[in-house]
Amino acid sequence: MPQETITLEVFRYRPEEDKQSTFQNYDVPYHEHWVVLDAINWIKDNVDGTLSYRWSCRMGVCGSCGMMINGEPKLTCAVFLKDYFPKVIRVEPLVNFPVERDLVIDMDGFMEKLKSVKPWIIRDDTDQMDQEYLQTPSQLAAYKDFSMCINCMLCYSACPVLDGDPEFIGPAALALAHRYNLDSRDKGNEQRQDIMGAEEGVWGCAFVGECTEVCPKNVNPAGAIQQAKIASTKAWYRSVLLPWGKR
């Protein structure tokens, strides 16, 4: 029996030779246990070595292989060919990002946004960094779900706000900022407030909730942002009603 195949319609853009992006079709052997990333790797190894894309762990941990699969942001290591067979699978780079080449997006803007929310533990007693900061299970539970983010950026592609306003800090970075604000060891809430409470911060979110829908790690960025809105509202009222006090 001949080997069954499935067609991948892959977005191509090579800036040194293409003025415009195109789509290229590849017929790939169909195996029930293959994920889309396996098919793309097969193309790279056997048909077209010029195809560029990011990948690393193949197990939904590194967050590198996010792409648009038939218009939906997915980790290509976590989506099986059998879910689409025998139909054509359209593979495109994540939307809401500039494309560098083929399926590789430019992450610089995302990295800048991520850094801007200071996603690390901030303390004022850095001279005592050799000591342990203990946490109870409930203190850990307060932020644990929000700490599962792998920065795969699927939520940035799903977010309709970012589609219209590229300055919006975006779901992953805001959820991560909220994660640190909730951490009992962190003292950086005030330092993050200016960015969290800005138009580009939590107030840019229209609570569509698509970020939560597409998140492969069940982080619930939409929920984090809504919680952060409550915290930001309290800070705003404190700054207006008690301008002489600390936020």
């Binding site: 800090i169 409470g197 800005a198 911060g201 107030w203 809105k229 509202t233």
Partner: peptide
Amino acid sequence: MSHLTKSNEAFWWSL
């Protein structure tokens, strides 16, 4: 971020 716009959205959102 290059620039941030201060927001009073918290007031409207609380209402």
